[in-house]
Amino acid sequence: MEKTKYKNIVDKNTPKENTFYDCLVAFVTGGLMGILAEILIEFYQNLLDIPFKSATVCMLVTLITLSCLFTCFGFFDKWVNFCKCGLIIPITGFAHATMSAALEYRKEGLVTGIGANMLKLSGAVIIFGVVSSWLFSIIRLVVGLA
């Protein structure tokens, strides 16, 4: 078969992704996550009298716990498939990656399964975050902006 014909068939059969629609869904769901975070911060600050710094930590912990729970009940995966980056980029994506890796490797035992593989997906975030922030803070100190 000729290469152009083959390419035509491949193009016809790959599922079409509407970039604009996906971006719009990610925009709306990501924005709603932002509003939810702001509501949680205000709730902790005003009703429970927690200072702003601790209120942000409480907000992050609440969102992480909720997304771990929803992943366990099984319907968070469907939401991620629909919203894509609207749920991957907020902190919920980090928790979802950790939780699904822990669930998946549960059957291989506590140490060799959960312990060794829990950070399989989300470890990249921690490692690249630490390396890049170390580099950037060295740069900032050398430049003398501190």
Partner: peptide, 13 residues
């Protein structure tokens, strides 16, 4: 917060 979080997610998408 809606605009900022939404924009970040849309760029990522």
């Amino acid at each position: 917060s809606f605009i900022f979080a939404g924009l970040v997610c849309a760029i990522a998408q």
